[in-house]
Every structure is written in structure tokens, then in C-alpha cells.
Write a protein that binds this DNA or RNA. Structure first.
Lengths: 192, 192, 192, 192
DNA sequence: GATGAATGAGTTTTCATTCAT
DNA sequence: GATGAATGAAAACTCATTCAT
């Protein structure tokens, strides 16, 4: 962090993003004011506006930078054949991507109401729909569809919700992946 | 809705709650202003303060009134023996209770960041912990615990998340319950 | 002005309008901040917003209240036959109406750029067109039309522009009316 | 306008003036920000400060460059004998000078409130007084003085005010000059 | 002849809340 | 059981300006 003395270097934009993500995730988007972000960075509010056009723009930039791996994963997934093995791999990779962008996903999870009328919300929703499409079985029952849905959702929620459950983080993450994979597998209509 | 003409004596408090819940659920807690609530009710902001001490107080009152069935359900659950059948029944009843208080749960689901530093948040969290305790198997593995957790979470999320998936609402609700029950059953240590 | 002690009575709205008009006319619309208005009234900025929805709304209200006589005059003018005598009377009355709402017209005269993109601007422009229509002679030459136009404009400009010319105000006003009337008369097709 | 590609060395100062005048005239001085000017020129705000000390300085420079013909005209007028013929010639030339610097005069006409507390305002006012002095008859009545005043003002206002009146621009300009000349002539006390 | 990064002072506007009536 | 009038604090955002490079 080395904030002693003059940082004044070309990294301000990045630092704004870091602090913003931290505060957005901790307190929520609306409750985080630009004054707060600026103060924590020891710059003026106007400096934020030099780097970002609006408050929302800061959020958008976070998604652009951090959600890319997810996009790439989905794009990759769409090139795969719809085999069980491929689907398992998608979930495995999704679990990793999620862990890498944990604060962002925590933010999304906890600020859904806000996301809804922020441009970035729509974008995300459609991403999820594409992912769902990759995992589900075309002729599956409603129950199967719900299973797939739950698989994805469990991963999202899991990361943060289990924070206050005792246990090793890695172990938890693996357990979540296991449950999700299990749900997805059962959703393939292995019924009979 | 019969909102034409006469203000219908004595039910203002109730009407405030109705409108507040609707707006809180639709737009989020922070983005809903008391002015908005008052305007929609055609009373002044000051009138809200006659009935409730603060904005947060309105929210608290909603939880007090609407989350009671959940509390009662959990309390009832705690009197039951930890059999599979009882656990299934708890989930079944939970599904119903959730449906009955759907807007409130939608609100919670979508405003977690807000809930966190509102007194009512803690209350709710502990409720969930108690519910989890009821469903999980004491010596279960981490994976089993995650299954239980996912079961509950799936029910919460399901109600709203599936809104924009085609299909009959009741069918969806049943499917969700089925998936949740399934998860919980598997979590009972099908180990051997 | 009696601003000693507590004014707190139902006249705040009026007082806001008074001060606003004075400042808008003196410094221009954009250069007058709500802080300034509030300070001069010894209330908070928020108090202004209790009485008016926006800054622009204060201006609109001034027009609504002060430009009414002009509207009525034009409406009356439109009921008159297009005789020379009637047209003279219209100018005479217009001169009076202008004097009565002098600060507002000074404001308009000096803030045309601002008026242009304020809703109230369009309204005013059409008013002027109607007035012009009343005075001009249908088959008049371009020169005649310009004369009518100049007659009206001279009255608008005169009131303020002559402020720093020595001489008795009433005498000036009469002189302006005389010049305007003269212009209008000549515009009636002294063709032959 | 050839604004594609190469920046055309050395003329930036001129380009700033061009864009500034256009925007000042279109939107008013206060509503035009340096950011806007810079953006339209595709340079940074700081570049403007290389060429001009302040925002006001840009405006001052416009007057210095564009109002010179007016100054010269007045200076020339002051060398002429106060004959009717000379006065007519002054008006004729003034009409031309005005047309040549139309956007600047439009700006002045529409931003009087702003002009008033910009150094350049005083300068201009005294110019007008000198012009008035040239046209009026020393012992004229108040009415005569008003006529002279109106003559000048009509020319100022006319150019822009008639923009939305149908008709050929040149014809309009001539009509305005005719009316102004007429007013001035009558102001010479041709009474008897 | 310019830019990149920033600032300080300001703007309009909104909010939850209060209180005398 | 309410309203009318107001406040204090804060929000997001904009602007002219500066200065090291």
C-alpha cells in the first residue's frame, strides 16, 4: 500500500477502482459516496471525475475489467460439444473465475436491486442466461432446469454466504463445486 | 384497490406498509424515498412520521409483521424430532411461508448490502442459521452442509430469479421444492 | 423589509420570488445561485425547494405571475378591430404593462441567450408574434413590418437602456411611446 | 471546414476563437464551458490556457479582433462634419460593419447581463455612446434622442430577431437600414 | 505548442427528519 | 391523525484554473 509521501503516479485510475470495489462490496453501491472513495485515496472528488465520467462509470469499468474472464469462459463453453464432461469442465472453470473475481460477485449478489437499473445489470443477466443454456439439457423437465439454475446460483451465493461458516476456504469452495456439479449432472435426465 | 375518494379511516399505517414494501421491493431501500411513499399515498411526509419513528422503522415493522410465520415455523421445527420426514415437512412449510411473504423475501434477496447494516439484518441471519441447524446432519461432511445451505438458498432465490423463465408459477415453485428436498435428503449422510 | 426578528409567516414563497427577480435581473439567471437567494432571505437552500421544484421553476413562476397582464392585453387586442386608433391604444397599454413589470422585462432583454433554452422562452416568443400580428398591416412592405417590429422592440429596450441617460423617467417613457406609436403609424401603409 | 486529419499548424489560436464565438453565440457565455470548446477542437483544456490567460480573455480577444471596424468607423465618424449626409453614411457603414461581425453582435445582444460585469462591457457601452453622440442633434428633444437611440438599437436587434421572419436576408437588412435612417432623419428636428 | 493529472470552490438537487399548529 | 414549513447534511457533478513535464 505504501501510501506514505507522494504516490502521484499514473496508477490513480487503478487505485480508484480498487478502493471503489472494496467499498461497493462492503457497504453497497448507493451507500458508498464519491467523497468516501476520494478521502480514502487522499485525492479530491474532482480527481475521480477526471478518470471516470460518472459514479456508474466506475462500476462499469470494474465489470469491464473483472468480468472479462467470465465472458471468455462462456464464449469458450459455446464452442464445446454439449457433453457431460464439457459441462463439468465449464463448472470447474466457472468456480475458479468466480473465486478470482470474488469481491465483484459479492457485490452483485448483495446489490441486485441496484444492479437492476444500472446498465451493467442487463449485460450480466444475459451472460447468466447463456451460461444456463450451456448447462441445461434441451428436453429437460422444469425440475431439471431448476437444478441447473441452482447449480449456478449456489456457486454465486456460496462464496460469500459461507464466509461465516467455520472451515477451510478451499475446502468450502471444493464442496460447493461438488454440489453444483452433482446438481448439474442430475439435471441431464439421468433419471432412468 | 378502491383508492378513489375517501381515505378510509384508521388504516393509514397499513397502507404505508403496503406501499413501502412494494417500492422497497421494486427499487431497493435506499432508492425509495419517503417523499415517494408519501406521494403515492397522497399524504405528507410528516404523516409517515406520525406512524413510524424513522424510515428504518417502517422496514422493521414489515419484518415484524411478515416474518412472523417464518419464526413460528422455525420454532415449531425446533420441537420436532430430527427425522427425515420432519425435515421434509419443514421445507414444505418453508416453501409456503416464502410464497406468502414473497415481496419481503424478494426485498431481502436483492438488498443484502442494505440489510447488513440495518438492525433487522442480524435478526434474519440468525433465523437462517437456526433453520440450517434444523436441516443439517450433525456429523455431515462439508459437502453435506453446503447441500443444506443450497437447499435453503435455492428456495429464496428461486422465487424471483425464475420470474423471467417461462412456465407456470406453481409448477416452478413445486420444482424448486423438489430440488431443495432432494438436496436436503442427500445431505443426510447417504454416506454409507 | 422589516426583516428583524422572526418573519416566519406564509409569505416565504412571495419573498423568494421578489429576491429572485431582483437578483436574476441584476446579475443574470446563471450567475445567480440558489445559495445567494437563500442567504439574502435568511433561509436554507432546502427551503427554496420546499416552495419550488427547481431553479427554473422559480423563473417560470415569475413569468406566470408577472406576464399575465401582457397576455390579457394581447387577448384584449385580438378582440379589437384593426383600426389605427385601436392599435395606438394597444401600444399605450403595452407601455404601461411593460413599466409595471419592468424588472421582468429587463431580465428577458438581458438574458436572451438563457431564455432560449428555458421552456418559458418559447412561450414568450409566441406572445411577441401575436402582438406583432396585431400591429402590422397585412399587405405592408418589409419596411413596414420592420417598423412595427422596431416599435415593439424599442419599448422593450428603452426602459432599461435609457436608465443611464439623463432625464425624467416619465418623460422618457412618454418619448419612447411616442416614437413607437409614430413607427407603427407609418407602418400602416402610408404607401399612397 | 476541412477538419479531417492534420491539425494545421499555428492556427490554433484562431480556431479557438472561431469555435468559442460560435458556442458563445449559440449557448451564451456562462453556459459554454472550456471543456466544450476544447472537445470540439480536439485539444485539451490546458491547450486553451496556452493561448489565452482566462476564459474572459478569449472573449476579450474576440472583441479586439472583431469590433475594430466599429471603432474605426466611429473614429472616422468623429472626423466628419455633423451633416445629415454624413450621418446617413455612418448608418450605412454601421449596417455593413454589423453584418460583418454578426455573430459577435448577436452574442452581445443576447448576453447583456453577462456583458455588464465583463470588462469588455464598459468598453462597448462607451462606444455606443460615442455613436449616439454622432447621430443625435445637440438641441434635440427627448423624443429625438430616443429616435436616434432606437435607430441604433433596431440595427442591433434586427439582424437576429428577424431570423425567423420569412423573407430574403438582404432585403431585410436593407429594410432595417431604411427604418433606422428614417428614424435618424426625423430626429434632426425636421419638425418645422 | 501542448498534455495529463489534479484541485478548490462552487453548482443544483435530494433526503430523512423535526416541530409548531 | 395529520399538515405546512423548514432544516442540516450530504449527494453527484461541473468549472475555471494550475503546473510539472
Amino acid at each position: 500500500m505504501s501510501s506514505t509521501a507522494q504516490p502521484r503516479r499514473g496508477n490513480t485510475r487503478q487505485r480508484i477502482q480498487d478502493v471503489a470495489l472494496e467499498l461497493f462490496a462492503e457497504q453497497g453501491y448507493e451507500k458508498t459516496s464519491l467523497r468516501e472513495i476520494a478521502e480514502q485515496l487522499d485525492v479530491t472528488k474532482a480527481a475521480l471525475y477526471y478518470h471516470f465520467k460518472t459514479k456508474e462509470d466506475i462500476l462499469v469499468s470494474l465489470f469491464q475489467d473483472l468480468a472479462r474472464p467470465i465472458d471468455e469462459l462462456i464464449a469458450w463453453g459455446e464452442t464445446q460439444p454439449p457433453t457431460l464432461e464439457a459441462k463439468k469442465e465449464i463448472l470447474r472453470r466457472y468456480s475458479e473465475a468466480l473465486a478470482a473475481a470474488a469481491p465483484l460477485f459479492r457485490f452483485m449478489q448483495e446489490n441486485q436491486a441496484t444492479m437492476r437499473d444500472l446498465s451493467v445489470g442487463e449485460t450480466f443477466k444475459s451472460r447468466m442466461m447463456r451460461l444456463l443454456e450451456l448447462l441445461k439439457q434441451p428436453e429437460g423437465t422444469m425440475t431439471d432446469r431448476v437444478r441447473c439454475f441452482t447449480a449456478i446460483f449456489a456457486m454465486h451465493a456460496g462464496i460469500f454466504a459461507l464466509r461465516d461458516v467455520e472451515g477451510d476456504p478451499e475446502e468450502k469452495q471444493e464442496a460447493i463445486l461438488e454440489v453444483a456439479t452433482d446438481l448439474m449432472v442430475r439435471a441431464q435426465g439421468v433419471t432412468e
